[in-house]
Write a protein that binds this DNA or RNA. Structure first.
Lengths: 355, 355
DNA sequence: CTGAAAGCGCTTACAG
DNA sequence: CTGAAAGCGCTTACAG
């Protein structure tokens, strides 16, 4: 037996450092640093020297080692982002916008998916802090309040996004969630429906409670208190549970309309309605959450609550950068963005046979 | 005028350093470093001292400053990833898997979206290298060959994913793209169709050329050389162009089947067929690329070429980590994953009226 | 068994 | 106008 040395260890080409430039033109690293950081004038460095340094830096393809700079400055220009699941289109869109806005503000983003597990959030937070992130943007999950509070207590710049904690003094950027389900519910009520169900996740997080509240308030105000149907879906096997819930709602409760409180719940719902052979909107009128291609291409294009994800995400970045630069605000900043309703065929008034 | 001091600069709680632990128990930082890096035995440090250090570190909630470690070690445990667009579900799934696998191998991921623009790739590469990434995983785009070659010439660990350059000696992890369109085309041929079109992007990248080649070969082998229809779609306004292309193919060329070479092209195609009121598969049979909810929920569930994205992504991470650890291989590693075909209603044989 | 020293590459206060 | 020195927090070769 012998080893075929298919691999041979090749060293990366060494990057040029400040010292390399300095020694190649016979000046100090200090001088080079001043020039390359645009402080030549401030330190009265001669124009000629300035040009020589700049030319040499270009020639040697210098760019600063940010790890070294970060260590020295105690700043990394890194923001850590934690979302529930980056393969969920809602969050991948969010990440895309955050990345873009962060770049504009000269920050880089590292991120991770929590899968709604507080332990994963804790692990990611620890990792990010060890990496030296300057701040965190987090979609908190059920059971993560203590972790969030601990971060805040340690005075680490932090902005929550999509959800927040009522009783934690932490800034956030969120949708007006109560308004969202209000719009949807009122729209279905205007279509003449009475038995309108809400399908939500089974979580105590702010966004969810508010979505329930918006629905219930609209129903009660319309005198439909006796017609409330809130179905809570476990995160564990949502697709299966949505199926059971819809079956129950349609067969037993004879519901006429459904508001889905997230995009994925609605997509599962469409699958289930198809399997149950329930016609939309003839048998059941529906409103989904967040636009997507599935809604567009469904045989009855799906009406939905439109969440201005661009604005929510950009403002979260603006805020975290502001906090990083300015320091923690005494009072929490609450950025609340208004939803609107996109009405299409899936929610439009049925031909009423007996009415 | 006076300023309301709504903000007050609050310093982050200082992290405890090696020195803090050392001085608090009156030993050297060296000793603490040895213990905390599991080298106590190796340096014959007494069991009692070892325990004292560990206890103190725990008490003071020490965790190492990775920026400092990175600077010292010349390694960051960071991998930079560049995809076309993270809000495209194919790439967000890819990123999700890469992130997970990287974590298992003790790496963190930073990423960016190129929008198929070589300048953006260059900018991201520069940024990542300044951040000190240990390696790069890149979805290269048209016009990026020079950039890729330069990275490789600088001996920076690099793995291409999804696409590669025939004449660049750079490792990659890709689908067997020719096989993919072969499977789809042959399937439609088996359904008795002759005029089968291929809708692809207008790019010279490997994956695209291979997808065209697989289609053409299948058609020619089946004696359908006269029935070739390749429609190339510009990246600039793909939805509009798909519409025009399909209109032309259906009205003028009387095509009976279409193979779409990416998920988004197929989604656009579904939109357009709906607008044109073309029934799938009765009037045109179709095969898409990559599974997604849209395909599942379309009135005729869409048959598609299944790309094992998990495997492609995981192997790319395994490979880059191997290259980082081992050094650049002399020969490039080519990881090619096999596709399979998921057949559903959208491609099934039409009721042949005249046949 | 343990510590002092050097050095990763950078920035900046200080000195001349 | 310019340079030597210190220090960010870590690891490790060297010395005792």
């Amino acid at each position: 037996m012998f080893a075929l040395h298919l691999y041979e260890k090749m060293e990366r080409v060494k990057r040029t450092s400040l010292k390399d430039i300095a020694s190649s033109i016979g000046v100090s690293a200090t001088l080079v640093s001043f020039v390359l950081n645009g402080k030549a004038k401030q330190y009265n460095i001669s124009e000629e020297m300035t040009q020589r340094v700049i030319a040499k830096a270009k020639e040697m393809k210098y760019s600063p080692n940010l790890v070294a700079r970060n260590l020295r400055e105690g700043k990394t220009q890194l923001i850590g982002i934690i979302v529930s699941d980056i393969s969920n289109p809602f969050f991948s869109k969010m990440i895309r916008i955050i990345e873009k806005r962060a770049y504009e503000l000269n920050y880089t983003v590292v991120f991770g998916s929590s899968d709604e597990d507080p332990n994963t959030i804790q692990r990611l937070v620890d990792m990010f802090l060890n990496k030296g992130v300057d701040g965190l943007i987090i979609v908190p999950c059920s059971g993560s309040a203590k972790i969030i509070e601990e971060i805040h207590r340690n005075k680490i710049p932090l902005v929550l996004i999509d959800r927040y904690f009522q009783d934690l003094n932490v800034s956030f950027s969120c949708l007006n969630n109560a308004k969202a389900t209000e719009l949807a519910t009122q729209h279905l009520i205007e279509q003449g429906l009475k038995d309108i169900a809400l399908v939500v996740y089974n979580t105590e997080m702010s966004h969810n409670k508010e979505r329930i509240a918006g629905y219930e308030m609209s129903m009660i105000q319309a005198g439909l208190k006796e017609h409330l149907h809130v179905q809570k879906i476990s995160i564990v096997n949502p697709k299966l549970e949505v199926g059971k819930a819809l079956d129950y709602l349609v067969r037993k409760e004879k519901i006429e309309g459904v508001v889905f409180s997230t995009n994925m719940l609605c997509v599962y719902g469409l699958h289930c309605f198809n399997e149950m052979n329930v016609k939309i909107p003839d048998e059941v009128a529906i409103v989904g959450f967040d636009g997507n291609d599935v809604f567009d291409l469904f045989y009855s294009p799906v009406s939905y609550i439109n969440q201005p994800i661009d604005q929510i995400s950009e403002e979260a970045v603006n805020l975290i950068v502001d906090i990083i630069d300015t320091g923690l605000p005494v009072d929490r900043t609450m950025l609340i963005t208004e939803p609107d309703l996109v009405v299409r065929k899936s929610s439009l008034k049925r031909v009423l046979i007996n009415g």
